[in-house]
Amino acid sequence: MKKISGLVITYNEEKNIEACLASMFQVCDDIVVVDSYSEDGTIELAEKMGALVIRQAFLGDGPQRSIGLPHCKHKWVLNLDADERLDKDMVNAIRQIDFENTPYEAFEFKRKNFLNGRWIRYAGWYPDYVRRLFDKTKTDFKPVKVHSKIESENYDRLDAHIVHYTYDSIEEMMSKLNSYSSWSAQELYKHGKSASPFSPFFHGLFSFVKFYVFKLGFLEGLDGMTICIAKSTASYLKYAKLIELHRKAIKTK
């Protein structure tokens, strides 16, 4: 018995869900899908693959994932996004873990991020460690709307890979960028953060220089430039939207 549960959150992931679940079933013996009322065939395909589907209106990245944990049969849980897969080295690494005696409560893996079918090795996209295998009795997801992660300081990094098919087009990237920047601004506002009129520009500029120059994004050619511009735009918008939220709050007083 594998004694690992799988966890995936979905919304209209018809094109990805079967490959994702097939990948996870290599090391998991049960999988929970928390779906935000998909309008395509995601739910039907997930159930056909043998997953338990929980329907839940989207609560944000962290809370949405946490909803699924009580439904996972085992204390060790592997969490993937629908556009992610286990690489062969990750399957082997997980099978070699002694879950009964490990001193760790979570494990991190390297992530190979693909854009338009091409593995991006620079611009901060590799090795891109992500914490995805954890003991649910000892830790949980950070309760934030965007880019949540397992809250744990007691973890190990393994030299194994998740394969991540990020975006099929620049249009898709920019659409998600807009949503992510809004959620990030809301998180900052909720925690009482403020920004000066210069914050959007300086954060955007710093982000571009960091990823294009110091993270060698220029080595990825046009894709690298696109990624770095997207990152800097997201940073700019996050703080611009934060300022907008404060302005709206003042007007309502």
Rank of each mutant, 00 (worst) to 15 (best):
K145C: 02
K75C: 06
Y126L: 00
K176Y: 08
D81Y: 09
Y212C: 00
A51H: 08
K215V: 01
D61M: 01
N101T: 11
G117C: 00
S169R: 01
L242A: 12
E108N: 08
I229S: 07
Y129N: 06
C72V: 02
D61Q: 10
P197H: 02
E171K: 09
A234L: 14
Y11C: 14
K112C: 09
P63F: 08
L80R: 05
G50K: 06
Y37N: 13
N116H: 03
K3C: 12
K231G: 08
R157V: 03
G6N: 13
M174F: 11
A51Q: 07
L21A: 15
K145H: 05
I250S: 12
A93S: 11
M24R: 12
L216G: 05
N16E: 15
I162A: 02
E171P: 00
I150M: 07
D156Y: 06
V130H: 08
P63C: 09
F107H: 02
G224M: 03
Q96D: 12
R247M: 14
K142A: 07
E220A: 13
K48M: 07
K110R: 13
E47M: 10
K145D: 09
A106Y: 04
D89F: 05
A106D: 05
A22N: 15
G192R: 09
T102G: 09
V163C: 04
L52W: 02
Y11E: 14
A240F: 13
R65K: 15
E18P: 06
L205K: 12
Y180K: 04
A93V: 02
S36D: 15
I97H: 08
T233R: 15
V209P: 06
